[in-house]
Structure formats: C-alpha cells, structure tokens
Amino acid sequence: MSQAPGKIDEDLTRKVAELARLEVSDAEVKLFTSQLGDILSYITQLSEVDVGTGDREIQPLIQPIELSTPLRQDVARAFGVDEQGNPRVMKSAPEVMDGGYQVPPVL
C-alpha cells in the first residue's frame, strides 16, 4: 500500500472529522482513533492480494451489474406540488422564506 495503513492518530481523526464536517468531542476522538485503528489494521489484509500491474491490473468493480445509461425524454412533469402550486419539497426544510431556503448569515 502507498501509505502506512493502520497508523491513525488523534490528529488524523480530527483532520478527517473536519473534512467530513463532523464535530467530535475529545472523548470521541480518543474512542474513534482506537476503534478506527483496529478496523484499519484488520483491513491491511487487502495488501496481501495480488491485484496485478500495467495491462494485467485488475479493474476495480465499482458496481455489481453492467449498467447502460438509460435516457428518457427531457420533459418536465409536475412533482410534489401542493394545491397552491408550491413545491411540497419546501415543507421539509427547517426554515424557508419567500419560496427559498433560509440559512443564517454565515459568510
């Protein structure tokens, strides 16, 4: 493997949590670091598999069936509209204003 796997430390856990936009407490960092270390050291077994190189490299299997890309007519259709013609999808939002999603001033 290109990186030393299984060597996850608290700084790396914090960094990855930041990338994933997750807030983690000190206790969680400690716990996750140890649990992820266990999981990653188990996963290192994959490095013993010969996956070939160059022309003989095994192609990754991203999904289990051969898929074509089905196309359909590009025609708009009514979807989830209430009696007033407003999209019902907006009703699921925590806050809306003037037909748009409302968010706090964060920029």
């Binding site: 493997m1 994959l46 598999v49 996956v51 095994i58 192609q59 990754p60 299997l61």
Partner: peptide, 8 residues
C-alpha cells in the same frame, strides 16, 4: 484496492 478485490 477494495474495488479491485471486490472484482475477485
């Protein structure tokens, strides 16, 4: 690598 072994 996981996807490669998945093919196997």
């Amino acid at each position: 690598r996981a996807c490669q072994v998945r093919r196997l």
